[in-house]
């Protein structure tokens, strides 16, 4: 069938449409494709976790080597810089008597860094959809609001996991193979499971928070500013209140400190244990998560209705 006015042929679709489209997966893949296209940002944001993973893996390896009475060859360099670096790593490894503590420290520092990654990749997801009118196209499809949020959440959580969970798992794998007689798995194997669970909880919570900020903002830049503004603002307020009231439990107001408190409790690192009740920390992060979910639900419902 050829139409007039230089039109191409219209070909009717002969197949069938899925009853329940895997919309969240389609949105997730699309989000990843767009994010991976910005290679410079990806490199800049992912380089620190990769470098940190390499360094900490080496420290863990060195620690187990020293425990067995041998020094890794790479630390025996003849150059001055090589010897200095070798001495530093040996000192770090020797001081880190418990690999558990080392991994927890690494995990916590990466969690804080992953906030930047999650914020960068998540802040624009809903805000830019609305600004560019993509929601008009998306919500005209057989796509539920839950499917839309899940698709966006999976995108941001993927990057959060890459920054927060994957490097820790690499260090755990190195520790597993470097430890004599699998002692790391036998004696401290729970760290692996706890690191995964803690990482998943952290990424879920922080992703929801960033998506909530994104749903409220009109631009990615505003969502980024809002995310860090609220995070640092709550941190400052919590510290101030804790000092003024002489009650450390006020620190639970800060999401960062609350998560650090939960980490100390979960991983059982006694040296790092704070002096306040972890119940407040659980309550704080739960409330933040629920509030984030409520904001997302409200804003996405509104987005659909105005589509």
């Amino acid at each position: 069938m050829k139409a007039e006015a230089n039109l191409e042929v219209y070909r009717p679709f002969a197949g069938t449409l899925r009853e329940h489209p895997r919309a969240a997966v389609a949105l997730w893949k699309a989000g990843l494709r767009v994010a991976f296209r910005r290679r410079l940002a990806l490199m800049l944001l992912m380089a620190p976790p990769v470098i940190a993973a390499v360094i900490f893996s080496f420290v863990v390896y060195t620690r187990y080597s020293l425990e067995q009475g041998s020094t890794p060859e790479v630390l025996g360099g003849t150059s001055v810089i090589g010897q200095m670096a070798g001495t530093m790593v040996k000192d770090m490894a020797a001081e880190s008597l418990a690999v558990r503590k080392l991994i927890v420290m690494f995990h916590l520092s990466l969690s804080a860094f992953s906030l930047l990654v999650v914020a960068w990749y998540g802040a624009g997801l809903i805000a830019e959809d609305r600004r560019n009118g993509a929601h008009l196209l998306v919500f005209a499809r057989p796509l539920s609001r839950t499917g839309y949020v899940l698709g966006r959440f999976l995108t941001v959580a993927t990057f959060g996991s890459l920054a927060a969970i994957a490097p820790t798992l690499v260090v755990c794998v190195v520790a597993t193979f470097a430890s004599p007689d699998w002692s790391f798995v036998r004696l401290e194997g729970d760290v692996i499971l706890k690191a995964i669970l803690y990482g998943v909880a952290w990424v879920t919570s922080i992703s929801a928070f960033v998506l909530a900020a994104s749903s409220l903002a009109t631009r990615k830049a505003f969502a980024l500013a809002g995310t860090f503004g609220i995070m640092f603002g709550l941190g400052a307020i919590s510290t101030l209140l804790a000092q003024l009231q002489r009650e450390p439990a006020w620190r639970a107001i800060s999401p960062g400190m609350a998560w650090a408190r939960i980490a100390n409790e979960v991983f059982g690192v006694r040296e790092m244990r704070s002096r306040w009740d972890p119940e407040y920390a659980y309550l704080s992060v739960s409330l933040l998560f629920l509030a984030s979910c409520a904001v997302i639900a409200w804003r996405v419902r509104r987005m659909e209705a105005v589509a």
Binding site: G15, R18, E128, G133, A134, L136
Partner: peptide, 29 residues
């Protein structure tokens, strides 16, 4: 099939990716 008024595009995607992605949301394999 809905063609909205005004500008609307999926940020960061090419034309064919946009249409294919929206097709998947509509239930296409």
């Amino acid at each position: 099939g809905y063609m909205p008024e005004g500008d609307c595009l999926v940020p960061g995607m090419s034309g064919v990716e946009t249409v294919a992605m929206l097709g998947r949301l509509s239930g296409l394999e």
